[in-house]
């Protein structure tokens, strides 16, 4: 049983683990429903972590460490492995050269950029000449819970008149214009968008749109218009109310000093 000898050997175990990890990250992960290919930077990061783990595994025990080094030692000195040695001596520098070439080669692709999806909001904005303080701001329409159904209905109408083409019928960012955009329109059903944000943040994004994004939000600026040019303050708040109402998310709330104190008391 030759294969068993290999399966028990730490060196081949290590090699097999690395190959398996690579296969899983690059080929298996994208197969999951709703998944996509893993960016190269992340593949590199994962593989480096696995490599460190494997090295720890083979060296945290003296006996295993000695056995692990046997094949390496043999490949370097044993006369019968001369072809292997020659192959390695060619392959390793070639590989290093290839990597170096890939790093310095010029390409026409735009350089990878970091685009912050939720950049820091200003503490106040000017809405049609009126100054609005965002810090601590909640949806003013929520002060009238009795008429919130009416506001939401208002918001629904405004949404379907203005937002539908991009953000879609299901509020999932899959409107019929959506595929043409980079970045794609926000998916409100996802727990990473409005569910993570305060209503004042959403108000800022709606009012100022793509042009109002700070530098972290570039270079692929969102195509979102500045809605302050088209909608009134109240209309924007009712759309926001509708978004939360329809998706069932709760806006992130401001932590007041009283609340924090209460929670500390609870612990």
């Amino acid at each position: 049983m030759n294969w068993r000898r290999y399966a028990d050997h730490p060196f081949w175990q290590a090699a097999a683990l690395l190959v398996a990890a690579y296969v899983v990250i690059v080929y298996v992960v994208p197969l999951f429903p709703g998944s996509a290919l893993v960016p190269k930077s992340v593949v590199l990061q994962y593989m480096a972590t696995v490599l460190v783990g494997v090295l720890i595994y083979v060296s945290d025990n003296e006996e295993r460490w000695i056995r692990f080094r046997e094949p390496i030692h043999a490949a370097l000195v044993e006369p019968r492995l001369r072809p292997v040695r020659a192959g390695l001596l060619v392959a390793v520098p070639a590989l290093v050269g290839l990597v170096a070439y890939g790093q310095v080669r010029t390409t026409v692709a735009a350089p990878p950029n970091l685009r912050s999806i939720h950049p820091a909001p200003p503490s106040e904005i000017t809405f049609r000449g009126k100054t609005i303080t965002l810090t601590g701001l909640d949806n003013p329409l929520r002060q009238h819970p009795e008429s919130s159904a009416a506001y939401a209905a208002d918001g629904k109408r405004i949404y379907y008149q203005n937002c539908l083409p991009c953000h879609g019928d299901h509020l999932d960012g899959q409107g019929h214009y959506a595929p043409g955009f980079n970045p794609i329109p926000a998916n409100f059903q996802d727990n990473g968008t409005i569910a993570q944000l305060t209503e004042s943040f959403v108000f800022w994004r709606v009012a100022k749109g793509g042009p109002g994004l700070p530098r972290e939000g570039t270079p692929w600026n969102s195509a979102m218009p500045r809605w302050e040019d088209f909608l009134t303050e109240r209309e924007i708040w009712s759309v926001i109310l509708f978004l939360y109402d329809q998706t069932g998310w709760k806006p992130r709330t401001w932590e007041t000093a009283g609340e924090a104190g209460k929670r500390k008391g609870d612990d």
Binding site: P39, K40, L114, I117
Partner: peptide, 30 residues
């Protein structure tokens, strides 16, 4: 744990990868 702990929310990706992921958040690993 180290893999999860190190997974970035906003990933570094070139334009092709961004298009495949539909943004700089990976739909699964994000």
């Amino acid at each position: 744990g180290a893999i999860v702990w190190g997974t970035p929310h906003t990933m570094i990706a070139d334009s092709k990868e961004l298009a495949a992921m539909g943004g700089s958040h990976h739909p699964l690993l994000g």
